[in-house]
């Protein structure tokens, strides 16, 4: 009983000692606008659309990012260009709604949509927070520099025909029954 009471008193006193000691410790706070800490590449802030190593748009407008977005801030319209590539005719992110959860980046099968550490993009007008494709598109490959989705997809796009992609056999000859 007495031991228990002593324990209680000691533990409470230890708590008071800990907090009290902090009064004489230099705060660890980094004062933000005066000092800007360099953020790691995987930090989640402003979203960009990257390009593949050949400099073409990576986004194929598959709607996965808009489908996974918990706040429905991504909208787009897919279209097909003259080469047969699927691309986004328009692509819009409403950063007024975005919660920077990064699910779009996880869902993206082509590494096109990526979050960057640049978090300072506040605008005074809410409509300026609505970014269109030209605002989002950058001339970089981003975090997955070597990946080119169409090299793996196996659909005919531009000059690459059936069997010309990574890990593909040439097209089957359906006119023969030879083994």
């Amino acid at each position: 009983m007495i031991r228990a009471v002593i324990d209680i008193i000691v533990s409470i006193a230890a708590g008071f000692y800990t907090t009290g000691r902090h009064l004489f410790v230099r705060p660890v706070t980094e004062s933000y606008p005066e000092y800007k800490r360099p953020l790691p590449a995987r930090s989640r802030a402003r979203i960009i659309l990257t390009r593949d190593p050949e400099g073409r748009e990576r986004c194929v407008a598959c709607y996965l990012c808009s489908g996974v977005c918990p706040v429905n801030c991504i909208s787009m319209q897919a279209a097909e260009d003259s080469q047969g590539r699927r691309y986004a005719a328009w692509f819009r992110i409403n950063f007024g709604r975005c919660i920077y959860c990064g699910l779009c980046e996880q869902a993206c099968p082509t590494s096109a949509i990526q979050l960057t550490p640049d978090f300072e993009h506040i605008r005074r007008d809410i409509l300026d927070m609505v970014f269109e494709k030209q605002d989002l598109l950058v001339d970089l490959c981003g975090k997955d520099p070597d990946y080119d989705f169409y090299q793996h997809a196996g659909v005919v796009v531009g000059l690459a025909g059936k069997g010309d992609h990574i890990s593909e056999n040439p097209p089957v000859n359906t006119r023969t029954n030879m083994p």
Partner: peptide, 8 residues
């Protein structure tokens, strides 16, 4: 393995 392809 490599994937089989067909012409469409």
């Amino acid at each position: 393995g490599r994937k089989r392809t067909y012409t469409d």
